[in-house]
Computed example of a mutant assay.
Amino acid sequence: MPTTGPDTAVPDTAVPGATAEDADVWMRAHRPRPSLRGQIRRVVGFAEHAGGAVHRRELPFGGVPIILSFGDQVRISSATGSGTYTSFVAGMHEIPVDTTHDGTLRCIQVDLDPLGAYRLLGGPMSELHDAVVPVDGLFGPAWRDLGERLAELPSWPERFELLERVLGQCVQDGPRADPEVSWAWRRLAGSHGAVPIGELAAEVGWSRRHFVARFRGQVGIAPKPAAQVLRFARAHQLLTAPGARSISDVAAAAGYADHSHLIREFRRLAGATPSQLIAAVAPPPVAGAGQLS
């Protein structure tokens, strides 16, 4: 789903690997209050109605999504296992994930910054590495049945208001990341994974071993694979942005050693070549797009 402005309805963009046809898709983006914006990247209300099952491949992106379903279920499969979920959180991934629903999906998606997820969840993020966990099994009482409670409210503003109350309480009560880890993550994310890990450890004044352990526990994965995910996300963004760019140009711009290196990383992180991902991106649907009520 695309990033949008506050409380705006937009047509969904095509997701690589989506196979549903004649689907009606609605979205409503919400800008969280200022106190939450350092923790949360995006909040989007989402509703999809298709004539049959919808299959998508979700790619690593350097964030932690929470899906708060209004009762609809999603089948999730990856190299680490499979299962059927209603509301769930997906930790930092460095592998692709395939999702399937039966044609109807109504939910709110909350994309968290990894350090925001650490603060909201209050536990070692490394336990969520490449994992999907039901919301009810992970969070405290405030999160229990939250998707159903959101669905019962009559309007999207009321749903977003309830969500913000829950998020605000979790942020207030949750642990703060080490300043050193926070600085290193921002530096790594701001460079799209281009800063050497040894340099980050030296600049925070920690041994490399201690730095890696603290980073993994609070971000979710070790610094080196985190850098690889960030670099991949940047390359994928460049490849699928409007305007033709060669794969070699994207490899150079994203910091890969060469064309072949980029292709190997795409096969590992996305389960597809760059050309296959580009081919999977279709024009966004227009018919049926509209305002969520």
Results as ranks from 00 to 15, higher is better:
Asp258Arg: 01
Leu128Gly: 06
Gly205Thr: 08
Pro2Ile: 12
Leu153Gln: 01
Ala279Asn: 09
Ala184Ile: 02
Arg57Leu: 13
Gly290Lys: 00
Thr4Lys: 04
Arg216Thr: 14
Arg234Gln: 13
Thr13His: 15
Ala251His: 08
Gly17Glu: 02
Gly63Phe: 10
Trp156Phe: 01
Ala151Pro: 02
Arg57Gln: 11
Ala253Ser: 12
Gly123Glu: 11
Asp178Asn: 11
Arg31Met: 10
Pro16Tyr: 04
Pro274Thr: 09
Phe266Asp: 10
Gln237Lys: 12
Pro154Asn: 09
Leu262Tyr: 04
Gly198Tyr: 02
Gly140Tyr: 00
Arg37Pro: 05
Leu230Ala: 01
Arg57Trp: 09
His259Asn: 15
Ala53His: 12
Glu164Phe: 03
Arg214Thr: 13
Thr84His: 12
Thr4Ile: 14
Arg106Phe: 03
Arg234Val: 07
Gly190Val: 01
Met27Tyr: 10
Ala9Arg: 10
Pro175Phe: 07
Gly243Phe: 01
Gln169Ala: 15
Ala257Gln: 15
Gly45Gln: 00
Asp7Asn: 14
Gly91Trp: 06
Pro154Asp: 06
Trp183Phe: 14
Pro284Asp: 11
Gly103Phe: 08
Gly255His: 05
Gly91Met: 02
Thr240Ile: 02
Leu292Asn: 00
Asp7Arg: 15
Ala289Pro: 00
Cys107Lys: 05
Ser126Arg: 13
Pro175His: 05
Glu127Ser: 13
Phe46Gly: 04
Pro157Trp: 01
Ala226Ser: 12
Tyr85Ile: 06
Tyr118Ala: 07
Arg56His: 08
Leu36Glu: 00
His210Ile: 12
Leu68Thr: 04
Gln73Asp: 13
Asp111Met: 14
Trp183Pro: 01
Pro284Asn: 04
Ala201Met: 08
Leu120Phe: 11
Leu59Lys: 05
Pro65Ala: 05
Arg41Ser: 10
Ala202Phe: 08
Thr104Cys: 08
Val25Glu: 12
Ala222Glu: 15
Ala282Phe: 09
Ala270Glu: 00
Ser87His: 02
His101Ile: 06
Pro225Leu: 06
Pro285Lys: 01
Val15His: 10
Arg245Ile: 06
His259Glu: 13
Ala18Ser: 14
Ala270Trp: 04
Gly116Val: 00
Asp136Glu: 02
Leu146Ala: 08
Leu230Trp: 06
Arg106Ser: 09
Gly116Ala: 04
Pro175Glu: 00
Asp130Thr: 11
Leu163Gly: 04
Arg245Asn: 07
Pro2Ser: 13
Pro16Ala: 04
His259Trp: 14
Arg165Met: 10
Val43Cys: 00
Ala272Leu: 10
Ser275His: 11
Ser77Phe: 10
Gln237Glu: 15
Gly290Cys: 04
Glu164Ile: 03
Trp156Thr: 01
Gln218Glu: 09
Ile40Glu: 01
Ile197Cys: 02
Thr3Arg: 12
Phe46His: 10
Arg187Ser: 14
Ala235Trp: 00
Arg231Pro: 06
Thr273Leu: 08
Val43Glu: 07
Ile247Pro: 10
Leu200Arg: 03
Ala251Gly: 07
Ser260Tyr: 13
Leu262Met: 09
Arg231Ile: 03
Gly83Trp: 13
Gly205Ser: 08
Ile221His: 07
Ala79Gly: 12
Gly5Arg: 15
Arg57Ser: 07
Ala117Lys: 07
Ser293His: 12
Thr100Pro: 05
Leu150Met: 03
Gly193Trp: 03
Gly38Asn: 07
Trp26Asp: 11
Gly140Lys: 06
Pro65Gly: 07
